[in-house]
């Protein structure tokens, strides 16, 4: 349990948010040309990092907007929050 600083609403309890998993996974530009291995990588394989992870969150019980979070998964400390489309800040 922790607080998340929504870039649109401010600090709220984590239970107001929905986790959206690993961030910065790019949708394939040419889906028809992907091999089965590449599809598996895109769809299923995850870094699942113990440590600093870049991830997406949705303020589902608030403004319902998506944004990015940098969080240490070994202690749930949030290092930075930034909007969709922005470059991740250096930490």
């Amino acid at each position: 349990m922790f607080l998340i600083n929504c870039p649109f609403c401010g600090e709220r309890e984590q239970s107001e948010f929905k986790a959206g998993g690993e961030a910065h996974i790019l949708r394939p530009k040419q889906p028809t040309e992907l091999s089965d291995d590449e599809w598996a990588e895109y769809l299923f394989m995850r870094k699942n990092i113990k440590g600093i992870q870049f991830e997406r969150w949705n303020h589902s019980h608030g403004c319902r907007k998506w944004f990015n979070v940098i969080r240490d998964t070994s202690n749930d400390q949030i290092k930075a929050v930034y909007k969709m489309g922005q470059k991740p800040p250096a930490i």
Partner: peptide, 9 residues
């Protein structure tokens, strides 16, 4: 969410 804290909400 992914977490290795062995806690929970």
């Amino acid at each position: 969410y992914v977490s290795y804290t062995q806690k929970g909400s």
